[in-house]
Nucleic acid binder design. Structure first.
Lengths: 283, 283
DNA sequence: ACACCAAATGTAGTAAAATTACAACTTGAA
DNA sequence: TTCAAGTTGTAATTTTACTACATTTGGTGT
């Protein structure tokens, strides 16, 4: 609870000298947090213990603790909110809105992730014979990205954009194979069918999708992400970002599970790229 | 500027004992602001003056002032910091760390974006005869995503993963064509070459890349994103997300510039998908 | 390998700040 | 007026932070 508000509210209940202290603090809180109890006492024309008592009345442990609370109240605290882009927004406005909305969505997504399922899925992935990533439309690029990540782990990874290739690939699945299906809505028919095919062939199907969707029902494990999507734009935006971040989480879990020696491996993969790059001054 | 971020960023510049202090603070900042310099010193296993020096290195007046700054950082303004994943992190821990780091990176990216360039690029894109999106490795999936977005605008969009196709495509460029090249480092040789080819053929080249990189120097316009990347993971993570968000910004700018009637168009594109989906109860 | 320097860290003493205990007021009711 | 409850201030105590200086560490050139 904001302590500045608290001061204003309780102002009536304060004693005469306490009111003086409150006044000085409210008049210039920025100065207050940088003053010692002595200076503040002098400014308010009261004694030091009075200031101290004032702090305690506001349920703080003492003057330093009070300053901490005050500092927090003063921190320009507007957490990220999902703000919709308006038709007349300037470039500056829509740029900021989109970045902020994306951050807000990530925060929501973070809270909706079931860590236990993440853990189980990481388990599965580390033990998988073959990992497939499939998605359609906007989710295709997420699957594409997952390929790029998991490919580095030197495990058999599969990714297709073509729906027929996806189907064929799933036809050839067997026990030990993991198929990761990505879809924001979880209502894309072809992807649901692919889930069915994969499961019929004993693969474990992991869905990165919305809970309770038709796709979710066909999956062995569901990593559900509840992401508010700005439907005004008629484009998936935040959902992809959340999906990608979840892919990052899975990839990270994978490397951690595989241990230190494995990390060396990743470094080697990265170092291989060096030849294809212009050197940076100093390395 | 958020002091928690500052700690994370400067971590490399700290001395051995200062790093210990940084670790303890980052591990549990809430405890830190309620501790005295003595307790914090003990927790970090260093002497009190070391903690004091640590505070001064971060441009604070001393320990109490440092606590004030820390308290402000912790207040719900910008709670997200780039925290590195640790080997012994539980699934819960690394999941949260990655989400938070991603959000923190987006915040940094947002501040590094030059809105004027965004505006100019949106201008270019709306007037382009043909738009191409190229990236390699991790950035390929970003280009892929851009394709998916701009494709809906009913403008000629091109995207290739294959480097030869990219080159050939650029060979056929002419004035009025816009080539968007995506690369975190901006040091990938083949992409720099593509920039050169495109420009030789009168195309306008837009780089979504690091400022001052070889690629940036070959571009007509540079949308630079300064994103801190956790090099421990040997994988691009935050940079892609920032790039994608920037693509969202461009796409949004595009639709806004095109006006209301155009939005109808997008709605139609989206509605077309309906046939391929399972209906949701109630729509 | 050694000496030497600079940077880093710690020790111990000092100064400052906050808190406590208690004394001296103020105020209002009997 | 007098007493009691509540308020405020003074002075001593304790806690906290800081400074000056000593010791250690690590690196560099001979």
């Amino acid at each position: 609870m904001n302590i500045l508000e608290k001061i204003t509210q309780n102002q009536a209940a304060f004693s005469k000298s306490e009111k003086k202290v409150a006044e000085v603090i409210l008049a210039n809180p920025q100065t207050a947090i940088h003053s010692s109890i002595a200076t503040l006492a002098k400014m308010s024309d009261v004694s030091e213990p009075t200031v101290n008592r004032f702090c305690r009345r506001l349920d703080t442990k003492g003057f330093p603790d009070f300053k901490l609370h005050l500092a927090q109240s003063l921190a320009n605290g507007t957490p990220y909110v999902n703000r919709h882009v308006d038709e007349n927004d300037s470039p500056d406005e829509y740029t900021n809105k989109i970045f902020e909305s994306t951050m807000a969505s990530l925060e929501v997504a973070r809270q909706s992730v079931d860590v236990n399922v993440v853990n189980r899925v990481v388990d599965l992935l580390t033990q998988a014979q073959k990992i497939s990533f499939f998605g359609l439309g906007a989710s295709a690029s997420v699957a594409h990205d997952a390929l790029n990540k998991f490919f580095r782990f030197n495990v058999p990874v599969v990714y297709f954009e073509d729906i027929l290739m996806q189907r064929m690939s799933c036809m050839n699945c067997s026990a030990g194979d993991v198929v990761v299906l990505i879809s924001h809505t979880g209502r894309t028919k072809s992807l649901v069918e692919i889930a069915q095919i994969a499961r019929m062939n004993d693969a474990t199907v992991v869905g990165i999708t919305s809970a309770d969707s038709p796709l979710a029902q066909e999956c062995s494990y569901v990593l559900s992400l509840e992401v508010p999507e700005d439907t005004d734009m008629y484009m998936p935006m935040a959902s992809r970002i959340a999906q990608l971040t979840l892919i990052d989480v899975l990839a990270t879990g994978f490397t951690l599970r595989r241990g230190n020696k494995f990390r060396e491996n990743l470094k080697r993969v990265k170092d291989t790229l060096r030849g294809s790059r212009y050197e940076k001054r100093g390395d």
